[in-house]
Design a protein around this nucleic acid. Structure first.
Length: 856
DNA sequence: GAGTTTGAAACT
DNA sequence: CAGTTTCAAACTC
C-alpha cells in the first residue's frame, strides 16, 4: 500500500491513492461515512485548519502568533483567495504538501518531535511526495486547484491551532493530493476546471480525513513550521520569480540542502508559476499584491500590530497600495517604520514612514524590476522581494546569529536590485555568507538592499545633509548614523524640523530631479528620452559633473542651463548641450506657433503641442536618456540603448525598468543607479503625496482614476492647473514608473493620460520659474503643495498663470522651461489634454484652469 | 578603514 | 544674495 500510490501517480494514482488513503484512513473512512456530527466532533478542530496551516504565511518566526493574530486578515484572505481562484492556492498547497514533507523529513531526522507521527504514515507521505516529484508536472497542475477553497483557508487562519497546523497541513496536503489524484483519474483528463471543482468539493472532506493524519503528526517543532510557511508563502504569492528564487534558495540553503524536495520543489514551482500567470492575467494581481502585503505585515509578529491594524482598517486600501511598493521592498523595515497609524498620518512623515519601509534603494529596485513584472507578472517583483526576505529570515530564524539574518536580507535585496535574473540569482541566494558584496556597498549611500542609508554624525539626521531625512524617510537599521533623531520614535521632532526647513526652503523636500513628462500618449515617440534634470542644477567646480559629487550626475540626469557647474562633462548631458537643445526647441516651437497663429481652438493647441513634442524629439539625440545609464561608464551604453526606446520621458523612467532585460543581459542596471533614480522617484511621489494628497492619493497618482486633486476642489482653474502641472509632472512621471509595476499600462492607455499633457504643461508652465533650469518651478510646486495640499490655493498665490502666457520660445529653457514662453506651449498642452479627458480626473480641473488662464 | 575631496546645506 | 562654514557623501589610497 505504501508503494502503490506513488508510482501510479499519473492517472492510475486514483486507485493507488485511494488505496493509500483507505489503508490509513479506515477509521476516517468510517467517519466520512458517518454522520456529519461525528465528523465534526472528531475532526473539526483540525479539519480545515490542518489543511491550511500549510499556507501559513504569516509569522514566519512565530506560527502561533500568526494564527492568533489578526482575524482581520482573515476576511481579506478569504476574499483574496477566492478571487485568486483555486489555481493559486492549489499550487501553494501542493507545494506545501510536498515541501512540508520533505522538510519535515529533513527536520524530522534530526528531531524526534516527529515521532508522534506514525512511521507508516510518514513514510507514505514522503513516499508520496517523492513519487509525485517524479510524476508529471501536469498532474500537479490539475491538482493545483484542489485546495482552493478559501473557506478552509480562512478557517485555517482563524483557527488557533498554531504550530501543529503546519505539520498537519503538510500531511493533509499530501493526502489531499492523493485524493485529488484519485479524483482526477476517475474523471479522466476532462476539463481541468471540472476537475478542480470536483476536487474542491472533496477538499473539505479530504481535509477532514486528513485530520487524522494531522492529529497524529501534530507535534513538529516550530522551525519546521517556519520553514514550511516560508516556502509556502512564496508559492502562494505566485510569483514566478519568487518561486524560482526561493527554490534556488532552498536548494542552496544549508539548512535545507538535505531536503529531498528541492528538485521536486522546482517542478512544483513551475506549476505554481502557471497558476500565477493565470491569476495575473485575470487582473487579479492587485489582489495578489494585497494579499502578499498583508501577509508580509503579518509576518512580523513584533511589529505586526500596526500593520494588521492598517490592513484591517479602512485605511487598509491606502496602506496596501503604498505598501505594495514600499513595504514589499524593504520588509525588514516595514515592521518598525510603518507607523502609518501615527498621528501625522497623511503628513509627510506618515508617507515617509511608508516609504521608509521601502528604502529608496528599494524603490529603485522596484523601478527596475517592475518592467519585468509587466512583461510577465506584474506583482511579482514586489512579492519576490518580500518573499525572499521572509524566506531567508525564516530559514535563518533558527540561526541564533542575528547578524547573519540581516546580511541575508540585504543580500536578497541586493540581488533583486541588481536585477539578477532568475537564473543568476542562485548564487546570490546561496549567500548566507557573502559579506563581500555588502561590504562592497557599504561605502555607498545605499546599502545592498538598495535602501537608502545615511552615516550622519552631527546632524542627527535632521538636516538635509542626511539623505534619509532629505528623502523624507526615517533612518533605519542599515543607517550608521549617530544620535539619529530621524526615527519614528521622534516623529514629532522630525516633523517640526522638516517644517522649519521647509519654511526656509519650500522645495527642500521636493524632488530634486524633475522629469519633464513630455510623454504623451500620442506623441510618445516624439518626446525626448532624457529630459529629466536637476531642479536647481549643480554647482560643481572640480568634479566636472563626472562624479557623484554632482547631483545631476548622481541622479543620472544631464546638466541643464540651471546648473552653475564649471567644465561640465556630464555624461548624461552637458550643460552646453542642454542649452543648445533648448535653443533648438524654442526655435522650432516658434515656427509651430507661427503656423498656428491666430487659432485658439483646442485643435490648434493640440497641433502645437505635437509640434513642440516633435521638437523635443529633435533634441533627443542631444540628450540621450542617460538616466538610464548606470554611471559614466555605462552612459555610453545607455545612450545606445536609449536610442532604441521611445523618447518619452516616462519611458525614460521606465526605461530603467524596461531596460531590465537589457540590464540583465548586460548586467548593467546597477542597483545603485536604479536606487538613485528610484530615490528620486520616491521622493517625488512621496513629496507629492505628502503635500498634495493624502496617502491614498499617492497611489492615485499611479492610478489615474481617482484623483486627489478633485478633492482639492475646483475652486480655481488656474490654480488647479498650476498645481497639476507643476507637481504632478514629476509625480506623473514617477507614477508612471510605478505603474509599470502595477500595470501602468492602463495609465498610458487611459484616454486622458495625464502624463503628457500634464508633464508638458508642467514644463511649460513652470518655465516662469525663477532659476529653475527647466522652467520647472520648483518653488511653486512645493509651496503650493505645502500650503495646504490644496494646490489651487497655492496656485493662486503664485498665480504663474499670467506669466505662463508668454510663449516658451523666449525662454531659454527648452522644455517648457522658459517661463515667459512657457505659457503658450503650456496652454496648448493643457488644452490638448483637456479634450481628451475632461470629466474623469482631477486633471480636468487643471485643464479647466488652463482654459481659464487662456481666456484671461 | 582612514584620510581626502567635493559640493550641497546651513549659516552669517 | 554672497561668502563662509559645516556636513556627509564620494572618492582615493
Amino acid at each position: 500500500m505504501m508503494n502503490s500510490p506513488i508510482p501510479s501517480n499519473d492517472n492510475n494514482g486514483s486507485s493507488s491513492a485511494s488505496a493509500l488513503n483507505d489503508n490509513h484512513n479506515d477509521s476516517e473512512q468510517s467517519s466520512k461515512d458517518s454522520p456529519f456530527d461525528r465528523y465534526v466532533n472528531t475532526l473539526s478542530p483540525l479539519i480545515t485548519k490542518a489543511h491550511h496551516a500549510a499556507q501559513g504565511f504569516l509569522g514566519l518566526n512565530s506560527p502561533p502568533l500568526v494564527f492568533k493574530s489578526p482575524c482581520i486578515s482573515h476576511r481579506e484572505t478569504r476574499l483574496m483567495e477566492r478571487t485568486q481562484g483555486t489555481q493559486s492556492l492549489s499550487g501553494e498547497i501542493y507545494q506545501s504538501a510536498n515541501r512540508g514533507n520533505s522538510l519535515g523529513k529533513a527536520l524530522g531526522d534530526s528531531r524526534k518531535s516527529n515521532s508522534q507521527q506514525p512511521p507508516s504514515e510518514r513514510f507514505i507521505a514522503e513516499k508520496d511526495s517523492d513519487s509525485r516529484n517524479d510524476a508529471n508536472t501536469q498532474n500537479y497542475g490539475s491538482l493545483l486547484s484542489i485546495d482552493a477553497d478559501s473557506e478552509d483557508i480562512d478557517q485555517a487562519y482563524s483557527a488557533d491551532q498554531g504550530v501543529q497546523q503546519s505539520t498537519d497541513a503538510a500531511v493533509s496536503s499530501l493526502n489531499e493530493l492523493n485524493r485529488s489524484n484519485k479524483n482526477i483519474s476517475k474523471e479522466g483528463n476532462g476539463d481541468k476546471n471540472k476537475e478542480s471543482l470536483h476536487l474542491s468539493e472533496d477538499s473539505n472532506k479530504d481535509h477532514q480525513e486528513k485530520t487524522a493524519y494531522g492529529q497524529e503528526s501534530k507535534k513538529i517543532e516550530g522551525e519546521k513550521n517556519d520553514i514550511q510557511w516560508d516556502y509556502q508563502d512564496p508559492t502562494k504569492l505566485k510569483s514566478n520569480l519568487v518561486s524560482s528564487v526561493i527554490d534556488k534558495q532552498y536548494c542552496n540553503d544549508p539548512h535545507l540542502q538535505d531536503v529531498q524536495g528541492c528538485e521536486d520543489y522546482n517542478e512544483m514551482v513551475s506549476t505554481s508559476h502557471v497558476s500565477a500567470e493565470n491569476i495575473s492575467q485575470d487582473g487579479l494581481e492587485a489582489t495578489l499584491k494585497h494579499h502578499g502585503i498583508r501577509r508580509r505585515c503579518l509576518q512580523f509578529g513584533e511589529a505586526a500590530k500596526p500593520h494588521v491594524k492598517l490592513d484591517a482598517t479602512s485605511n487598509e486600501m491606502k496602506m496596501v497600495k503604498l505598501s505594495e511598493h514600499a513595504t514589499s521592498l524593504c520588509p525588514q523595515r516595514g515592521s518598525r517604520d510603518f507607523p502609518l497609524t501615527g498621528p501625522k498620518a497623511g503628513t509627510a512623515l506618515h508617507l515617509n514612514s511608508v516609504i521608509n519601509v521601502m528604502p529608496t534603494g528599494e524603490a529603485a529596485t522596484t523601478g527596475v524590476r517592475l518592467p519585468e513584472g509587466l512583461q510577465g507578472m506584474k506583482s511579482t517583483p514586489l512579492i519576490r522581494l518580500q518573499r525572499m526576505d521572509n524566506v531567508k529570515r525564516s530559514i535563518l530564524s533558527s540561526n541564533p546569529d542575528r547578524q547573519t539574518l540581516v546580511d541575508t536580507r540585504n543580500e536578497s535585496h541586493e540581488v533583486d536590485s541588481s536585477l539578477s535574473t532568475d537564473a543568476g540569482n542562485s548564487e546570490d541566494f546561496n549567500e548566507p555568507p557573502n559579506p563581500r558584496k555588502k561590504k562592497k556597498k557599504t561605502s555607498v549611500n545605499a546599502d545592498s538592499n538598495g535602501c537608502k542609508r545615511c552615516n550622519c554624525k552631527k546632524t542627527k539626521c535632521l538636516k538635509l545633509y542626511c539623505d534619509c531625512f532629505a528623502l523624507g524617510i526615517y533612518c533605519t537599521d542599515p543607517c550608521a548614523c549617530q544620535g539619529c533623531l530621524n526615527r519614528p520614535e521622534y516623529a514629532e521632532t522630525v516633523s517640526e524640523t522638516k517644517q522649519q526647513i521647509e519654511a526656509r526652503n519650500s522645495n527642500a523636500f521636493a524632488p530634486k530631479i524633475i522629469k519633464p513628462n513630455t510623454d504623451n500618449m500620442e506623441d510618445k515617440n516624439l518626446t525626448t528620452p532624457s529630459s529629466a534634470r536637476h531642479k536647481r542644477g549643480c554647482n560643481c567646480k572640480r568634479s566636472k559633473c563626472q562624479k557623484k559629487y554632482c547631483e545631476c550626475y548622481q541622479a543620472n540626469v544631464g546638466c541643464s542651463s540651471g546648473c552653475r557647474c564649471e567644465g561640465c562633462m556630464n555624461v548624461n548631458g552637458k550643460k552646453e548641450d542642454y542649452a543648445a537643445m533648448e535653443r533648438r526647441t524654442l526655435s522650432k516651437e516658434r515656427v509651430s506657433n507661427i503656423v498656428e497663429t491666430g487659432s485658439n481652438s483646442t485643435f490648434h493647441n493640440k497641433l502645437e503641442t505635437v509640434s513642440v513634442k516633435k521638437n523635443h524629439d529633435a533634441f533627443s539625440p542631444i540628450t540621450p536618456s542617460l538616466q538610464f545609464s548606470d554611471q559614466g561608464k555605462e552612459a555610453a551604453k545607455s545612450r545606445v540603448i536609449s536610442g532604441n526606446y521611445p523618447p518619452c520621458p516616462e519611458f525614460n523612467v521606465s526605461m530603467i525598468s524596461s531596460s531590465s532585460n537589457y540590464t540583465r543581459s548586460s548586467e548593467n542596471l546597477h542597483s545603485s543607479h536604479a536606487l538613485l533614480e528610484t530615490n528620486e522617484m520616491l521622493r517625488t511621489a512621496l513629496y507629492d503625496s505628502q503635500n498634495n494628497c493624502n496617502n491614498v492619493n499617492m497611489m492615485d497618482q499611479f492610478t489615474p482614476v481617482s484623483h486627489p486633486r478633485s478633492l482639492s476642489g475646483a475652486s480655481s482653474f488656474s490654480s488647479g492647473t498650476n498645481e497639476w502641472t507643476n507637481i504632478p509632472q514629476s509625480r506623473l512621471s514617477y507614477g508612471s514608473i510605478r505603474q509599470l509595476h502595477g500595470g501602468s499600462l492602463r495609465w498610458r492607455n487611459s484616454p486622458f493620460t495625464p502624463s503628457t499633457g500634464v508633464g508638458e504643461a508642467h514644463y511649460l508652465e513652470c518655465s516662469e520659474s525663477d532659476n529653475t533650469p527647466f522652467g520647472i518651478q520648483e518653488n511653486e510646486t512645493p509651496d503650493i503643495l505645502r500650503e495646504g495640499s490644496t494646490p489651487m490655493r497655492s496656485v493662486k498665490v503664485n498665480s504663474p498663470t499670467q506669466k505662463r502666457v508668454s510663449p516658451p520660445q523666449r525662454r531659454y529653457h527648452g522644455f517648457g522651461s522658459s517661463s515667459s514662453g512657457g505659457l503658450r506651449s503650456g496652454r496648448k498642452f493643457i488644452l490638448k489634454s483637456v479634450p481628451t479627458f475632461p470629466p474623469l480626473s482631477p486633471c480636468v480641473d487643471s485643464k479647466g484652469n488652463d482654459k481659464e488662464d487662456l481666456a484671461q
